[in-house]
Computed example of a mutant assay.
Amino acid sequence: MAMTMMPLVVAMEGCGDCELMVQLKIVMILNPRFEMKNAKIILGSSSMARRNILEEMGYHFTVMVADIDEKSIRREKAEDLVLALAEAKADAIVSRLGIEGHKEENAHPTLLITADTVVVYEGMIREKPSSKEEARHFVKGYSGGCAVVVGSVVITNLTTGTRKRGCDRSEVYFHDIPDEVIDRLIDDGVTLNVAGGLMLEHPLTAPFVDTVIGTPDGVMGLSKSLTQKLLDESLES
Score class of each variant (00 low, 15 high):
residue 130 S to I: 12
residue 178 P to T: 11
residue 140 K to S: 15
residue 127 E to Q: 14
residue 159 T to Y: 01
residue 166 G to L: 05
residue 136 R to S: 07
residue 133 E to Q: 13
residue 157 N to L: 10
residue 136 R to T: 04
residue 171 E to P: 00
residue 150 V to I: 15
residue 165 R to K: 15
residue 146 C to Q: 10
residue 174 F to R: 03
residue 171 E to K: 13
residue 171 E to A: 14
residue 164 K to P: 02
residue 173 Y to D: 02
residue 127 E to A: 10
residue 129 P to Y: 03
residue 146 C to G: 00
residue 165 R to S: 15
residue 160 T to I: 06
residue 127 E to Y: 06
residue 153 V to Q: 06
residue 126 R to W: 14
residue 155 I to T: 08
residue 145 G to W: 00
residue 168 D to S: 15
residue 174 F to K: 01
residue 154 V to T: 06
residue 150 V to T: 09
residue 128 K to A: 04
residue 172 V to Q: 03
residue 164 K to C: 14
residue 178 P to K: 07
residue 172 V to K: 01
residue 135 A to G: 07
residue 144 G to A: 09
residue 135 A to N: 06
residue 157 N to G: 08
residue 154 V to L: 10
residue 159 T to N: 15
residue 132 K to H: 12
residue 141 G to D: 06
residue 137 H to W: 12
residue 161 G to Q: 07
residue 128 K to N: 08
residue 126 R to V: 00
residue 142 Y to T: 04
residue 125 I to Y: 10
residue 178 P to W: 12
residue 148 V to G: 01
residue 158 L to D: 05
residue 171 E to M: 13
residue 132 K to E: 14
residue 131 S to N: 11
residue 170 S to A: 13
residue 149 V to E: 01
residue 157 N to Q: 09
residue 129 P to M: 06
residue 133 E to N: 09
residue 125 I to K: 10
residue 150 V to G: 01
residue 157 N to V: 09
residue 172 V to G: 02
residue 151 G to N: 08
residue 160 T to N: 08
residue 178 P to I: 10
residue 138 F to E: 00
residue 149 V to W: 01
residue 143 S to I: 08
residue 127 E to T: 14
residue 171 E to L: 14
residue 168 D to N: 15
residue 128 K to W: 07
